Computed example of a mutant assay.
Amino acid sequence: MFHPLRVSAVEQLTDDSVAITFAIPAELRETFRHTPGQHVALRRIVGGAEIRRTYSICTPAARTPEEPVVRVGVRLVEGGEFSTYALKELGAGDIVEVMEPMGRFAFEPRPGRFAAIVGGSGITPVLSIAATLLAREPEARFCLIRSDRTAASTMFLDEVADLKDRWPDRFQLVTALSREEQQSGLPSGRLDQQRLTGLLPALLPVADVDGWFLCGPFGLVQGAEGALRELGVARGRIHQEIFHVDDGTPATGAATAVAAAAPVPAHSTLTATLDGRSGKWPVQEGDSLLETVLRSRSDAPYACKGGVCGTCRAFLVSGEVRMDRNYALEPEETEAGYVLACQSHPLTPEVELDFDR
């Protein structure tokens, strides 16, 4: 559900990014009390067309009765309708429709050693995770390895510096710039799989890290995961969220590989359960299952429609589907029967989804 929230501040972070803070009215404080790592979807209507974009919350999670602070980072995307609006037009006092926090990149703080590898705006949810963890768990340690193009393009420099100042013994920061030399830190260049495989054991005891958080562009996350697996890190300790996928990147995910060879039926019918109500509709040629539901149920959950955010996750009750892309679901989720409705197309005459599971 979307709620109209007033913008309390828009702060310039870099030449191409801003931080937006929303005022949360008293009656919605519990609704917007987020878990570290979660995101919100923002909605805007332009010329009668709906635009939705997902942005991660960067602020520490507040416990009851503390007032929650919802602040998101937005980086300008070339041709991006919402990011262009956010950087060039949005100001304090404006109203934006905001969906309540969600997402499976969420992390409940616990004692232990944790680390993150992030690129660009991928710092946003990890900033919330690290700040909340260090404040709540006196024995916890966090290592942040971040990659950016240049120092001038680095988001949330002051916030990360504050973590280093407040917890110098428990917060480790390693920075890499791909297009600029720096006086301290790593030599310039991209953090690819080969480089990370050699670098990580020199920075921290890899085997002792209880959880790894990977966030940013697809290439960085894929390379970081490959390096960690090569170093013997169990899949269950690796958590990832993709922020950007280049067009033409091949589809991934267990469901895609299993179903790709199945014949496509001439006509299919979708049965879907959402918020306790079920409906049955014909699937039009070329439509995804999400598009099929949206024709009759505008409240169907989605944000990016690109297989990245995971908002449209649903349980496949019966039938078979093909997922064109999957950058949001973990292998355990696809093996358990979950699919992304925005990327799923029917491979059987009858398909049933449950969005409530």
Rank of each mutant, 00 (worst) to 15 (best):
R53I: 04
G73H: 05
T249K: 13
P263M: 07
T59S: 10
T271E: 12
T124Y: 04
T292D: 04
E108G: 00
G248Y: 11
D158E: 15
G216L: 10
M323F: 07
S268V: 10
V18I: 14
V98Y: 04
L5E: 03
G337S: 14
G80N: 07
S56C: 03
T132Q: 07
V293Q: 08
Y338E: 09
V206Q: 10
A176D: 09
Y327D: 11
Q183M: 14
F355L: 01
M99K: 08
L144V: 13
A341M: 09
L191W: 12
G211F: 14
F22I: 14
V174G: 05
H345W: 05
P263K: 05
G79P: 00
A336M: 08
T64Y: 11
R146A: 14
V245W: 03
D356P: 00
P282E: 10
Q193A: 15
T292F: 02
R44G: 11
E330W: 03
D356A: 00
V293R: 04
G37Y: 10
L220D: 06
G310N: 04
L28Y: 10
L191Q: 09
K280F: 03
A115R: 04
E291F: 01
R104I: 11
G226Q: 05
S17M: 13
A152R: 10
P346G: 08
C342N: 07
R110A: 07
T124C: 06
Q38Y: 06
P282G: 04
E11Q: 15
S344L: 09
D165S: 15
E291P: 01
T311V: 09
G93K: 07
R52S: 02
G112M: 05
K280Q: 14
L163E: 13
P201C: 06
A224D: 06
A202V: 08
S318M: 02
R295I: 06
R190P: 01
L199P: 09
A23I: 08
T154E: 14
P111V: 03
C312F: 03
Y55G: 06
Y85N: 00
A259F: 15
A234Q: 13
I51E: 10
F32M: 12
A49Q: 12
V351K: 01
D354T: 04
H345I: 03
P109L: 05
Q38C: 06
D162E: 15
A92N: 06
V308I: 14
A41K: 14
G307H: 06
I242N: 12
R53N: 07
F355K: 00
G236Y: 08
E89A: 13
D210C: 03
D192W: 06
G47N: 07
A202L: 08
R141Y: 00
G48W: 08
T269L: 09
